[in-house]
């Protein structure tokens, strides 16, 4: 890996670690999302001379499309970062927690949920069709994808 790409990955991993410390911070989630999306471009720039590493992609858009086709989380983040009006968005929403699942909650979620109708706050990616995915999960999946490709 080039030094520049290694720096990008280090910056991305640090931003992700900060998000894990503050899993409800939409600003930290946005930062990770943007760094992830940018990492795709940086990876192409670093690997473009090596057809094996870029999977035969001739340009950055092809490379991005291939990565998105290969990993749904990468696709979701690309759509999120594109900022289209009809695209996915990041939202903090209250999510119902079944009482039998309480034992697995962090204590802060647990305490707050008790007097908020058994709900916890969760940062979510709301997709075009209205379905939702937990934002930290999507970001972690995309990070793992790039870590594996860069490794």
């Amino acid at each position: 890996m080039s030094a520049a790409l290694a720096d990008d990955l280090t910056r991305l991993e640090a931003a992700h670690a900060a998000l894990l410390e503050h899993p409800l911070s939409s600003r930290k989630a946005w930062l990770v999302a943007v760094l992830l999306d940018n990492f795709c471009d940086a990876a192409f720039a670093a690997w473009r001379g090596d057809p094996r590493r870029v999977g035969g992609a001739e340009d950055v858009l092809r490379f991005r499309a291939d990565a998105q086709a290969e990993n749904p989380a990468v696709a979701t983040i690309a759509a999120l970062c594109a900022g289209r009006a009809d695209g996915p968005r990041l939202e903090t929403r209250a999510v119902k927690v079944p009482i039998p699942d309480y034992a697995s909650l962090p204590i802060s979620d647990y305490m707050v949920s008790l007097y908020n109708g058994n709900t916890v706050q969760r940062l979510q990616v709301v997709l075009r069709d209205g379905t939702t995915q937990l934002a930290p999960d999507v970001l972690a999946e995309a990070l793992a994808y790039w870590q594996q490709r860069a490794g």
């Binding site: 410390e21 503050h22 409800l24 911070s25 939409s26 903090t92 802060s108 707050v112 706050q121 940062l123």
Partner: peptide, 11 residues
Amino acid sequence: GEKDTGIPLDQ
């Protein structure tokens, strides 16, 4: 608390 994982700073 700024590290409160039950209360978003945004809120």
